[in-house]
């Protein structure tokens, strides 16, 4: 080894790594707290709607562990996607591409949280929910992030399954088994995911092109994407009615979900009819509304149950 190289190694060893500059807030943002809030909410609904009531302490623990699992998957996603995150304006300020946390540290953080959440779920809640949580993390980090995201325009269609699992985990945490109801929750989020992300992809089309991610607007163009959004919102409008049709939810849910879906479909029609100048604004509106829509549909389920109990 040359003397210069030895000297450089010595200097490097004395310098704190750039990663040491990462604050607690950076580590929290590594867990994508906004995505986590939707995960927590849908998992909570899965728990509440289950026919078995858990002790509040156990229920809160289950939701916290699901949230940690979601955070772990997000950290692993940020570890793998650091290169493309650095190219996109929406993501370049994230802790890894911005250089506040290094990739290795994000990976270790993600792996630790994965192990912690899954093992704690197994010990404190039940093995089935722990296995499901482990599979969800694996699906998001490996199937979606590593295998699908950069390869196919169907990335978000298949990958959407990862985001659809939390209410199922919530249900299984309470009951220890599967049934038709959590599968309906799964289906609703699964079909909701493509129009939600494609609306975002329309607005951030240049970003995705620059990062070479084959999102639908990049590979098939804007017109094909808005048609697909329309198709999925119509399909979603039918799917959200299944809990009502199958008698799992009552009239409050049926009416509320219908109105919410009508607005969603209306916005997608508006998107198809929009001019090139208006398209970004309407796509942005559709993206925002899709979040509100999912919140409303899932909030209506316990509200409807509460109404049925009080009458």
């Amino acid at each position: 080894m040359s003397q210069t190289h030895e000297m450089k190694l010595e200097i490097d060893a004395k310098q704190p790594r750039l990663a040491d500059a990462g604050s607690a807030a950076d580590f929290i943002s590594l867990m994508k707290p906004r995505v986590m809030s939707l995960v927590v909410f849908t998992a909570l609904i899965g728990l509440i709607m289950a026919p078995v009531s858990l002790h509040p302490v156990v229920a809160v623990s289950a939701v916290i562990l699901i949230a940690i699992g979601a955070g772990a998957a997000a950290a692993l996603n940020m570890w793998y996607d650091a290169d493309i995150d650095a190219v996109m304006t929406r993501t370049k300020t994230r802790p890894v591409p911005a250089g506040r946390i290094d990739r290795e540290e994000a990976l270790i953080f993600g792996l630790w949280l994965s192990g912690l959440s899954v093992l704690s779920m197994a010990v404190l809640i039940n093995y089935t929910s722990a296995a499901l949580l482990a599979f969800t993390i694996f699906f998001y980090a490996v199937i979606y992030t590593i295998l699908l995201k950069r390869r196919t325009a169907q990335n978000i269609v298949i990958g959407g399954a990862a985001g659809a699992f939390p209410p199922v985990i919530g249900w299984v945490a309470a009951t220890g088994s599967f049934s038709i109801e959590p599968l309906l929750f799964f289906l609703i989020i699964f079909i909701w995911t493509p129009p939600h992300f494609w609306a975002l992809a329309l607005v951030k089309n240049e970003d995705y092109s620059a990062a070479n991610i084959p999102m639908l607007p990049v590979t098939r163009g804007v017109d094909a994407t808005v048609r697909q959004i329309m198709l999925y919102t119509v399909l979603l409008a039918g799917t959200v009615m299944l809990p009502y049709i199958l008698g799992f939810a009552g009239i409050l849910y049926g009416v509320g979900a219908s109105v919410a879906s009508a607005i969603f479909v209306g916005l997608s029609i508006l998107l198809i009819a929009s001019s090139r100048e208006q398209r970004d604004r309407i796509a942005s509106m559709l993206f925002g509304y899709s979040i509100f829509y999912l919140f409303i549909v899932f909030a209506l389920l316990p509200a409807d149950r509460l109404m049925a109990l009080s009458t």
Partner: peptide
């Protein structure tokens, strides 16, 4: 959390 769930 572990303590409380164990107690419950």
């Amino acid at each position: 959390m572990f303590f409380l769930v164990t107690i419950v």
